[in-house]
Design a protein around this nucleic acid. Sequence first.
DNA 1: TTGTACGCGTTATCAT
DNA 2: ATGATAACGCGTACAA
Lengths: 328, 328
Amino acid sequence: LSVTVVDVARAAGVSAMTVSRALNKPDSLPPATVAKVRDAAASLGYVRNRLAAGLRSSKSHLVAAVVPTLAGPVFMDAIGALTQGLADRGYHLMVGQSGYSNKDGDALLSDIISRRPDAIVLTGAVRSPIGRQLLKASGLPVLEIWDLYSDPVDMLIGFSHEAVGVAVADYFAKDQRKQLCLIGADDQRSKRRWEAFKRRAVKLGLSPPKAAFVPAPAMLGDGRKALRTLLDENGDIDAVFCSSDMLANGVLIEARARKKKVPRDLAVIGFGDLNFAKDLDPSLTSVRVDGPRLGALAAETLVRSMQGETIETKVVDVGFEIVKRQSA
Amino acid sequence: LSVTVVDVARAAGVSAMTVSRALNKPDSLPPATVAKVRDAAASLGYVRNRLAAGLRSSKSHLVAAVVPTLAGPVFMDAIGALTQGLADRGYHLMVGQSGYSNKDGDALLSDIISRRPDAIVLTGAVRSPIGRQLLKASGLPVLEIWDLYSDPVDMLIGFSHEAVGVAVADYFAKDQRKQLCLIGADDQRSKRRWEAFKRRAVKLGLSPPKAAFVPAPAMLGDGRKALRTLLDENGDIDAVFCSSDMLANGVLIEARARKKKVPRDLAVIGFGDLNFAKDLDPSLTSVRVDGPRLGALAAETLVRSMQGETIETKVVDVGFEIVKRQSA
DNA sequence: TTGTACGCGTTATCAT
DNA sequence: ATGATAACGCGTACAA
């Protein structure tokens, strides 16, 4: 495709500059001229070259996002909404995966910056000094999403894992549960919830919670096995907080196999409120984070930032909600 | 970030051209020069501008992918593997969602082409004449993935939904099942499986299968409801093919609630072989498509194509597998 | 082995 | 309201 503005200009009988204006700010020209140019462009099959446009204007209209992995349901809602929110406003999203660290995270960042995106979105991954330095030096708006940290690079939209841990412990305590436990994936986020959960339980005067961790990605079968292990070690357990609904589903199945009634004998709370949670039997109480809202908010914030607005609130806590159902 | 090759050249005491060479083809220069340039680049924090590089060389090292939606587990494995396979070879992936058709698909394609990607990956979405024309005119390698079609734009890697429908019908027939049915999401792919499934069953001398369709995205609860409806209409049903494991999970739950033994009274086969399938009780027989392999193969094929190789086999059928477990 | 000149396609700027 | 000119940063082509 090598039709350029010059070709269109010739066909429309105007200058290249007029073509550019007609296509980008049609309001600043007489409608007749705009129409002429549009017709010429259409009939030639002109598609503008954003590499050139970006080079000249220093605006690529491209946003880069780094996620640990695209597989896995966790961030998908948020990333999907982000992609859409950006697309609606004329921006495209480029994705990089930090999880498979063949290349280390800093090399990935450098690769990304080489595209001259107008902004960068990070999903709780790049924390290295070099990475932070790269980001700072790039001068780009940086938005971290998902996890609330105390020291964001720049902007941050997320929720607090610690607050989740505390809230679930409180929820169990209010329900008169005595021996709490947690089944989690072996990752940072889960660990942060665990620490807060444990501390809170002890503070509330409950006996110290037990924990079982399984390798990520956490699967249903892991939940079954983990509950088995926990019950074998300590039959008194009467409340389980699972770090994903998948694990919780496994716990429900294992509980049934053991003739443990949920929620009478065992209260179960999941995390993620995946779409099947409400349809399980018993239906699953779960911690819900509004991914689509988070993604949409991220898109809006980014666009405002890229358009030069100063973002006053650098950190937004989108919170979470414990969706009460039958299991707890 | 406005450090350019010229700045690096000055710092290293060489010309801009030497910098470019040192960074891109270090083998063609004396190691000493390369080192000098690298040091200078590093200390200045130079990151090359791929917009400029792409403009000049007509190689953006960018691949664009169109998926119906990023949310939803279906393509994620494949897209994740594709992203990684490309990243490992120095290419980045840009994603667009065709599902939310605020913009129509053709506008999305045009937006994508404006980035001058080196190739385009489509996930069974853009079939409009204008879209095909745009793709043809762009002269870019086009790879369609996931669904096997008879008239690919160019290259195609996928599997045949029709073959799946036939295979599952055969499977049920061999198991002496008499009254088959299908519970599917209301989408094209599911419909294609249904048509083949139905035709095959009739051809095998079975009574015509029943079907129930639920709105996408198909959820567990939909499976429960659909089975209820089907059983109420026709109690003889003894085999269900579900167009997702989520629906199948719902079917298993509903079957248990109705005291229907699986697989004795009812054989159940899912689709997708999601990670929980093997851990359900009874474990779920499911149709498995190797997403990671598909994605990796797509990446490899694309890179070869972008490097100018002629791809001999335009169409690759990656097939599928019925993973036999307890439910059927 | 290294450097010079130019062009990729677009838009900012200034001029008319 | 429109046009002429130059420049964005890099790599190709050729020269030294």
